[in-house]
Amino acid sequence: MAKKRKSTSTNPTILSQDITIEIFSRLRVKSLMRFKCLSKFYNSLVSESYLVDMHQRHSMSNHLGEIKFFVLDVEGFYSTEVKKGGKVSRCNLDFRYDDLSYANGRFIVSFDLKTENFKTITLCNALRYQWRRDYKLVELKGKLAIQKRSSKSVKLWILGDPHREDWKSYTICFPPHLKNIITYKIFSCCDCYDVTNNSWYDVTKKRWKYLKISSFSVTDWIEENIYTYVKCLFPLKKIRNVS
């Protein structure tokens, strides 16, 4: 029989909660899932939305201002790093996708790498039976979203709670100077019409931002898109439990 230990809700460590969050948000998912076992405090901390949010940001930008992108060319995906001084390095990834997502018009089929199970998420009414190739699945601040681009705006359907399958729709209009550019796709709200001049929409601050990449050494192998790079979708559990 297991012994009942005294329970406490206070942080029992030598560090303050703020600093603990700062450090833990830099850990990978595997470590975080393991450290839920440290104590009651850590078990709840790892599930807290603030930590999840910070974890997202840190996995998207490596420490000290380095930004990672996925770049697609005809051969597959490459990972590219932009460092503070504008220097860009490139490394090849040993995998290849033809398409990131697929849906049959009623469901999104997801595959969980850890449990090796297929799950389905029902689409909202507005999207059902209308699935086309220009509808893209994206990850937005830890949430799953579908986006469709028109000449003047991007329409987003964001899946709030995977359990209840509640989709909310949003429309983001392009700033005036981008309205003429209609040939390129948008991924994760990152719009790339020229690989060295990028604009993307910041969903938190609700405004468009611009990024100029200087000294980009290779240009001929880039097809058309820049992807934001996320090491992991977090939390994994929420998606896994959808039936």
Partner: peptide
């Protein structure tokens, strides 16, 4: 980590096992 951060474990063995069963790969 418990030792490094001076954490006192206040989870019961059942609770601990539940967390492990949730993500044994971790």
């Amino acid at each position: 980590v418990r030792e490094m951060l001076k954490i006192t474990n206040d989870l019961t063995e059942e609770e601990e096992q539940e967390i492990i069963n949730d993500a044994p790969w971790a």
